[in-house]
Design a protein around this nucleic acid. Structure first.
Lengths: 144, 144
DNA sequence: AAGCTGAATGAGACTGGGTATCATCCGGGC
DNA sequence: GCCCGGATGATACCCAGTCTCATTCAGCTT
């Protein structure tokens, strides 16, 4: 758990200081498979007695969000959750059963956006697409 | 401001009681052109001395959300906002300058979703697409 | 290796959106 | 008009996220 992971690299590369608390938060995030809430992160940190303050967890999250290695998603329930991912522009398909997510690229969305611009006259400069459903393994478990 | 609007009709049709406070909240919402936050609604209600409680405003919002005549959107800034709209499934293009929104239909998104299902193996049963940009009139104002 | 300096931290107060509780009220079916 | 359960208002509460500020520490300089 102490070798340098992709989070540490990203932090260092962007000129952020590589501090103990930031690494610790990155480790906690890396230990999560699917999405997680801030409350879960805080609970993790507390239960491991890391002595990391509430504000620090949120600040570390902010940094990772800015770097694009973590994204915030809005679950259908309305709650906010966070998700580790690749820093390029993309979207997510989120499994509503196990919480794991798969990154997807623009997948023809560009054309849809162009079409919408043409029909509405808007100039669209930002969009968000979130998909929810069952991942392959949860699908087969459900069938069984 | 007291003739029956689409909100009142929707309320009645769904078997909800047509109460004074609910009509009042619906009127406040109808008076908004673009999106609005809960804080704005509460402030409106207070400034008009309607004597409507905080909880009632949120409860009325819940009902209207459930009916689909109001939707909750997540602005790029991360704040929540609400938006009056048609109750059918659709998406929004939101003007990031004036806050007004235009409803759009699925616009080829169905094909994109199908493609994603094929490529990822997920069964997608819910999605959210939000677009942000400049509406035609804000575009021309900006040019001028 | 020690010094320096500003970024990062922890503790905890604070804010703001939203919910829960509960006694009272009132819409609308009779 | 009566009645009853749904709706309401006041208010306490909860939770996510932010702010403040004194202290610490990463990492450059020497």
């Amino acid at each position: 758990m102490s070798e340098r992971g992709p989070f540490d690299d990203a932090l260092g590369a962007a000129g952020y200081r590589l501090t103990g608390p930031r690494r610790a938060v990155a480790d906690l995030i890396a230990a999560h498979d699917g999405h997680f809430t801030s409350a879960e992160l805080l609970a993790d940190a507390r239960s491991r007695r890391l002595g990391i303050g509430r504000a620090t967890v949120f600040r570390a999250l902010d940094v990772l969000l800015e770097l694009g290695v973590v994204e915030r998603i809005d679950l259908p329930s309305g709650e906010h959750a966070y998700l580790a991912c690749e820093p390029s522009h993309h979207h997510h398909v989120v499994c509503s059963r196990c919480g794991r997510a798969t990154d997807i690229e623009d997948a023809g969305l560009r054309g849809v956006v162009d079409d919408i611009e043409r029909r509405t006259g808007y100039r669209v400069d930002r969009h968000r697409l979130e998909l929810f459903g069952l991942c392959p393994s949860c699908r087969s478990e459900q069938t069984a």
